[in-house]
Write a protein that binds this DNA or RNA. Structure first.
Lengths: 343, 343
DNA sequence: AATTAGCACTCAATACAATAGAGTGCTAAC
DNA sequence: GTTAGCACTCTATTGTATTGAGTGCTAATT
């Protein structure tokens, strides 16, 4: 069947009305509010076609139509006009960003809050992931006779620290020598590469500190590789309760449960590729998101992707606005991070 | 009016039944389930007295009775028997703790999760607050020509790092000298004391690095003093939706809103004094908690209070169990932290 | 051939009344 | 002091109309 221009307009009307009011849209409404020149009957015929084509659905016989996932998809890909958020808003975002200079984690948390506030949906944000970068240097600070703080500076300038518990005392001096040696061996390596390092080689150079080095390296690997310490922040979880689709307490509960599963959110964010991404309802791989839409985007430092953010909302999301906001936000975040961490 | 023993038993029955079923308790129920030797009529008379005395209330004429805040308070103070959680559970807690050795923040987060899982309420936990301790040493690591990482080790062994952006380059060597000097001046001082330090004094010793020192110290003060970076973790927020008192979506929403206000939670946790603490409904200072009960407790390192945890639930909370769990948890947390951070 | 008006039909939501059930307070008996 | 009995109150539930939005189909119109 052919997708005439009028069908397109009607689909758009249905989607945009449904986005705003969360209620099935009937032919009369469309005739009155959107296509004033066309009678309800005509619209009904077109709607019937649209339903056959799978773009809209009827919750029950005597209700209006609601968009299907396929309908939203078409809308996002072809119909929706780019929502360019206005300069005032853009400026607002920029200013807010500069305000929160300081610690990177705080910046990221701030982004999460901003995202949820501006979209009125739930936001999730992953802190910069430095596994994707490579090690630049490792430094040690002796805290006391049983504990050493290891500080890792990476490619992207992001750092992380790990407390190492040692079985034997070491002087700050020894630590400096160890770190010099480690820097020799490790610097430039991707963090994944560290795993495959030949420890023996290193132990030969160990100047009698074999045990310490072994412990340090293995703890390093452990921490870096296996403990996913990358923080995931969320904000605006309660926004979801403002939506009529979550007035059912059970749905609300299951949504909240999802939002408390850090692992899950991490997985979602970690799989994000490309720039801005939209997954609608059933397009989501994860069962738990089959009734939501997700807008995700990545952010970068020096053009290297190191993290991602996302917006979670109902399938009747204000795609155009949400996409624009997410886009602007990650662009700014990337810029700021890059400038903060410039080497 | 006198509080006879039977009245006490009836009050206990009402409270415990209401805790379990969240529904007004009638005289017949009590007669059948709790005081099998006594007839409903007698119990009704006693209940009438208890109501006059303000320990119980009637939602409406033909409903059973529910405990008032005053009733819960009496229950917690006088009636409730200490719930000694059994050895298995205690052991479980201990084991779980040891599992999550490693980073302190992760440990704390873990405590939050454990608390909510074991109580089935919402937990809030404040990360160790090192403002309450004093500085032990300050170390610097040069990251690149414009950035230095300052690591602060405190009394309790807890550390924190701050990235300082400098206007001029410094060598690692210079940094070591600066840190030696700073350690001289600062070590042993309470973090609040740092503010009142005589900068001039320091600048005289500055060996030509006045500008850097000035910047370092002022940044230090700024970060330490004014930015409340103490994390607040929460867990089990969605548990609240399992409770019938939150089946009203509006109540649920307002609860969630509270739980997203980090500042508020921080304030609550920050005001906790003493060991274990119970505030019931209207006893809470904050308007937002007038319909909840809060069980809070502090944890320590080397007998120095450095943080607190809390459980938020409905007034019909399982006080006895919750108190026992919170108590056990903070005790273990204190022990583990103290042993981890032993100097 | 496309559009529109008209009409019968469907179905959810709402309102309303009737009923059942839980619980109380009071009185009188034990 | 305790208990049984009874009238009374109030909520929750269930069943029954009623309303109204919306559709699909058919026939008339352009």
């Amino acid at each position: 069947m052919d997708m005439g221009n009028r069908k397109r307009l009607i689909l758009q009307a249905i989607i945009e009305d449904y986005i705003n009011h969360a209620e099935p849209v009937g032919s009369r409404t469309i005739s009155k509010k959107y296509l004033t020149g066309t009678s309800p009957a005509t619209i009904r015929n077109e709607m019937s076609d649209l339903e056959d084509m799978g773009y809209i659905e009827q919750p029950h016989t005597s209700a209006g139509r609601v968009p299907s996932d396929k309908g939203y998809r078409l809308y996002v890909d072809k119909i929706m006009k780019q929502n360019t958020i206005d300069e005032a808003q853009r400026e607002m975002i920029r200013r807010k960003f500069v305000d929160s200079l300081g610690e990177i984690d705080r910046l990221v948390k701030h982004v999460s809050k901003l995202l949820s506030q501006m979209t009125q949906y739930t936001s999730i944000v992953m802190a910069p992931q430095f596994r994707r970068t490579s090690v630049k240097q490792v430094q040690f600070i002796r805290i006391d006779k049983a504990a050493v703080l290891a500080v890792i500076v990476t490619d992207a300038g992001i750092l992380k620290n790990i407390i190492l518990r040692l079985r034997q005392d070491v002087t700050q001096d020894t630590l400096i020598r160890i770190s010099n040696m480690l820097n020799d061996k490790l610097s430039g390596l991707g963090i994944e590469d560290i795993e495959s390092i030949d420890l023996h080689d290193m132990l030969n150079d160990s100047m009698g500190h074999g045990e310490i080095i072994e412990q340090v390296v293995s703890e390093l690997i452990q921490t870096l590789l296996y403990s996913d310490t990358t923080e995931v922040y969320r904000d605006g979880v309660s926004n979801i309760l403002n939506l009529p689709e979550y007035s059912d307490i059970n749905k609300a509960r299951s949504f909240l449960n999802i939002m408390e599963e850090r692992e899950l959110l991490f997985k979602v964010l970690n799989d994000v590729r490309g720039d801005v991404n939209v997954s609608i309802g059933s397009e989501n791989k994860l069962e738990q998101f089959k009734e939501c839409s997700l807008i995700t985007a990545t952010y970068k430092v020096n053009d290297k992707t190191i993290g991602s953010v996302g917006i979670i909302g109902p399938t009747r999301m204000e795609y155009s606005k949400a996409i624009a906001i997410v886009e602007c936000m990650t662009k700014n975040l990337s810029e700021i991070l890059t400038s903060i961490l410039r080497r």
